[in-house]
Design a protein around this nucleic acid. Sequence first.
DNA 1: AAATAAAACTAACCCTCGGTAACTTATATT
DNA 2: AATATAAGTTACCGAGGGTTAGTTTTATTT
Lengths: 203, 203
Amino acid sequence: MTEITGFPTRAKLHDLKRREIVRCASEKFGAEGYENVPLDAIAAELGVTKAALYNYVKSKNDLLMQCYEAGMERLVTSVEAAMDRSGSAAEKLDAAMQAYILAMTQKDMQYLWRYTPPFVTSGSNRGEQRSRDRLDTMVREVLAEGVADGSLRADLDPKMASLVILGAVNWVGIWYRDEGAMKRAEIARDVTKEALRGYVAVR
Amino acid sequence: MTEITGFPTRAKLHDLKRREIVRCASEKFGAEGYENVPLDAIAAELGVTKAALYNYVKSKNDLLMQCYEAGMERLVTSVEAAMDRSGSAAEKLDAAMQAYILAMTQKDMQYLWRYTPPFVTSGSNRGEQRSRDRLDTMVREVLAEGVADGSLRADLDPKMASLVILGAVNWVGIWYRDEGAMKRAEIARDVTKEALRGYVAVR
DNA sequence: AAATAAAACTAACCCTCGGTAACTTATATT
DNA sequence: AATATAAGTTACCGAGGGTTAGTTTTATTT
């Protein structure tokens, strides 16, 4: 991810550094919380001064937004990977939602759900909406697919169903804490099963 | 709510003022956002100085927490009122979840869902957990009641079902924006219906 | 009524931290 | 070589959370 290809032009180096700043900030925000991490701390860890960061980000909030986007990108990737399997739409959906829960209960991902848009205010709302909408679209599509292939109930409405399913799944990100007795994989399995309970076709 | 009974002792006046501060802060936080409201603004509106506030709250974050608690209290009250009706458990649950959505999509309540614990960090976690847990308990109880009276499916697990239902319902608080085309009452009705879809008994 | 303790409040200040400006150094380009 | 541009640094500003010392108000004691 944080690499460049070919000859390192100035533009490539600039982008490489920007991504490295985002990676470093993501770690610290995730571990210590956005408002507990001064820009000086991030700069220090990277061996530069705070002012240098402003060549790469417009503001601290912009940096948060870039962290959010990068995190969502990873999450979407992992969900897409889980979905890229043979089987019925119901099975794909199940795998996708489990991957979703697993990804978002990772230590460095949890803060994304605390600073969810529109809490993230800077920049174009376009970008920040995109990943979440993409997920929503993916879920709706596989729901429609499930109606078509018979693995999901024929009477479900993809729009409303995706609302409920994503709600249940995202809710995990809010209440999940490391201390809990349940393992992440268990939670992913059980919550997903419950969230899809009313939608899988009876066979 | 913001009243005292009997002779105004110093302790009563102290608590009255504290509640008035919380009320004022809730309004401003809700309208302008927590980090956009300096303590000076709240103090000015109350006709005192910032330092005076520190007789009533430990920190700005503590003030936020008190706003959160007060808001949750109102929400729980409104849900309890909705639930206090005759009818099957399924009907009670339906009314309760609609009231829940209506309450939390109110303008001055939305910020509560952006600054949800454990984002609110100060003070004892006991208090801040209580209202949310109470809601969870109420839902589980009415779910069990529904299994007993036959208005809900016999094979549902109250613990898991409450997770999914509350997830779907709370999710509304995240994505709901005023601009949307749908009216709040419509959203409350439709989302609740969908969230309970898999749980109501087929008759 | 006078003395005194305690609470309520203010004015003035400190400190952290996001953000900026002026200036210097490195790296391309012509 | 000359010069434009990007990258970084030092030094600073201002907003705002929080504190402290001291003053006014209110209640209690003798």
